[in-house]
Design a binder for these strands. Structure first.
Lengths: 220, 220
DNA sequence: AGTTGTGAACTGATTCACAGCC
DNA sequence: GGCTGTGAATCAGTTCACAACT
């Protein structure tokens, strides 16, 4: 109906999350906001913010800015967090537990409906309001519970096997914490969070800065 | 001395981490590898892999490929994980604990030398081989311990304050798990891992796929 | 045959700059 | 004065395509 049929650049989708985060941080008492204010808070340019919001079909008001409530609503709709996603967590190790206890999960619409592990000592116990199921039952339980999305927090060696089971279970997306590339059918969305990669990116930037400092000291 | 003075594109740095991960996954028995093999494993093109390795000053051998040991070594050197980084963790909540128990931390050179929290019940207890220090002592302890880098796992509301203390402590980089943008002096590197953002990116992609499916069904 | 190295063409995204609006 | 919307210019990164090498 009202959907603007313009392709959103991939880097822009990332920024949309940041816009929403900034809006939420400002609280609901702020009713109007300018592209400049958002840009300054996030280290971007105002033109970029306007372009991004434009591609979503959003319009502001000259001399004033954008209505925060309309903005928030539109961002949530585009990002897909305005509807519920039935969520499963696989792997009740340190990462799995940390993810489950993340309070924003619910707020973003990711309601936990199933938890899996392959450790017999954990199966049957309750974690975050769910009984831990045997990982061998993933496909069946995901179908029965109509699970939409899985948060995958198992060791790298097991990740692909589990992913395959999840796909059999009719899952639509995976947030993968294991440091491996998963091969999945094209109808399954995948986002990866790899701590190893993040550490390396950080080490790279620290090295760069150190190098620059050294160069500055040496060459006039 | 041997450093190639070519700027590495930002997206390329990300890929370097993936090359290294792939190399490690193959094990040390593989001595030579072609750009094609790497590309296929990671869903990239061979030309891209060659370009990337070229910008690092790496050369392969026509008809054979690249030496895996030289490759690994070069990647580690460029990424900066060939040297130790004295590391502190701030925040002993779920995320902090998960990060500390990540076995790859040590392997990547991030040796834990200090842990902080502001909860009196935790201060003085031992976690991951470190005595938990009072968060109010961050600046002093970081100086005394010559901490290079901090893994910041505190609630969003406290993150900027803690970051400021870390900067006072002479830190060079922060891996930030809190869902806020930190403002830091330019000599401090920052990488953020925001679960909220990752969830939204996943929701977006799932929504996109759902939409595409619908469109395919409707329009012939 | 298999593979590298790389200029040239291309694609995608960002920035500029300014007309138009309140 | 402050702000939006946007075409045009620019910049960055990727892909192509092919000569050169083993």
């Amino acid at each position: 109906m009202t959907s603007a049929r313009t392709r959103i650049p991939k880097p822009a989708v990332l920024r949309l999350s940041l816009y929403l985060r900034d809006l939420d941080a400002r609280g609901s008492s702020v009713r109007w906001i300018s592209s400049r204010a958002i840009a300054d808070a996030l280290g971007l340019t105002d033109a970029q913010v306007r372009k991004d919001l434009n591609t979503l079909g959003l319009s502001g008001q000259s001399g004033v800015g954008y209505r925060t409530d309309a903005l928030r609503e539109a961002l949530r709709a585009v990002l897909g967090t305005d509807r519920p996603w039935r969520t499963a967590v696989v792997g009740v190790g340190n990462i799995g537990r940390a993810v489950m206890s993340y309070e924003r999960l619910q707020a973003k619409g990711f309601g936990l409906v199933a938890v899996f592990d392959r450790n017999p000592a954990l199966i049957g116990s309750e974690v975050a309001g769910c009984i831990v199921e045997d990982a061998r039952r993933i496909a069946a339980v995901c179908r029965a519970q109509a699970v939409d999305v899985a948060l995958l927090a198992v060791p790298a060696a097991a990740a692909q096997d589990v992913a395959d089971q999840l796909v059999l279970g009719g899952i639509r997306g995976i947030l993968n914490f294991a440091p491996v590339r998963l091969s999945l059918p094209p109808h399954v969305a995948i986002v990866s969070v790899d701590l190893t990669v993040s550490l390396e990116q950080l080490a790279f930037r620290m090295s760069l800065l150190a190098e620059m400092k050294q160069d500055a000291a040496a060459g006039g």
